[in-house]
Design a protein around this nucleic acid. Structure first.
Lengths: 186, 186
DNA sequence: CCAGTGTGTCTACGGTCGATGACATCACCC
DNA sequence: GGGTGATGTCATCGACCGTAGACACACTGG
């Protein structure tokens, strides 16, 4: 194990952390299937074979990255601040969770894990907003808003829509929140 | 060549058409990279090697499918009917063009071709709507609406959001149009 | 100094991908 | 009726994928 504060030439904890970090980045940028373990190893500066050793498989590394990003959900206010949510997601960029909305995983376990995170982070809060506003079909509205949200975040970082990518983030967040909020009453 | 009306046992035109049809379907369902030439051949009931013979490559088959779908753009009204557009896209389901918005092709030619179609079909009409409404940032608004639109259509057919997938199409189109139109004035 | 264990490196396997080209089969024409 | 081009079938190539395992090295405890 680690000998106190001295830096070791070989430290599995460091290697594991680097792999997890690189995996999170690459899964976010390209999604699960399009990132290879060799890519992850290269970005982490770690031999890709260590993924199998420390995480068991690429899929389990994905799950670990999903859960790591799983910070505590924001306090469930009655009315979600869409502009804040949008700003946060635009800043963080795409994530495996968002990809799973638009393109399901073939592996049901991976899909379920991703949707769990989405549920806790955005879906529930948006649905609650629709409910307290007394709107009909609150769940459908929440899912519709989430779908649009995902489209905006992914499109902005994809770069195919030039102005959306180039525009100031605050402007996108403001306009986007206006768009998303229009079916949540207010 | 074909001998009048008699059906031939071997007819390259039929094989080509079947491949194109199958390719369009599969590229729409799964995107470009995730569909294999073997899949296309299987669905078409045609040997996948004929893709190379008749279209040169998988990429060129993709371009052919893109262009085939390129029916004449709807008449450019001053105010786009978002509910109609949404209904049309929800009915047709995802398409290679929509995928290209959220996930760029690695091949610039494929990406450019896809964006050309998107431009003619959706972007221009939406932008024009924003312009005649005298809104600031018409292009950004058009791209934002397009991004949200793509998110909704892809998410609905992906099936990860259960109610969005299960809901009646007309309801989705109505709510979606309300959402999209909120940044286009009116 | 030596064993034992944690850690890293490298090669290779089985599988799938897009693409190629050899070969077989069919239809037609002189 | 035999040649000729069009069409279809098949085996295979090289590249890349995730994974596994053999091996080398570094550090620790005796």
């Amino acid at each position: 194990m680690t000998t106190g504060t001295t830096t070791r030439r070989h430290d599995s904890a460091v290697s594991r952390a680097r792999l997890l970090e690189a995996a999170d980045e690459l899964f976010s940028e390209r999604g699960f299937e399009r990132t290879t373990v060799r890519d992850i190893g290269a970005r982490a500066g770690v031999d890709p074979a260590l993924i199998a050793r420390y995480y068991g498989s690429k899929a389990e590394l994905y799950l670990a990255a999903l859960r790591r990003g799983g910070r505590p959900a924001p306090p469930a206010a009655d009315r979600v601040d869409l502009e804040a949510v949008l700003t946060r997601l635009l800043t963080r960029g795409p994530s495996p969770t968002l990809w799973a909305v638009v393109r399901r995983h073939e592996d049901p376990d991976l899909q379920a894990a991703a949707m769990e995170v989405l549920q806790a982070r955005v879906l529930d809060a948006v649905q609650r907003t629709a409910e307290v506003a007394g709107l009909e079909l609150p769940r459908l509205r929440a899912e519709l808003v989430t779908a649009a949200l995902v489209g905006i975040v992914l499109s902005r970082t994809a770069g195919a829509l030039g102005e959306l990518t180039a525009a100031d983030q605050a402007v996108v967040a403001r306009l986007g929140a206006q768009l998303l909020g229009s079916v949540l009453g207010g």
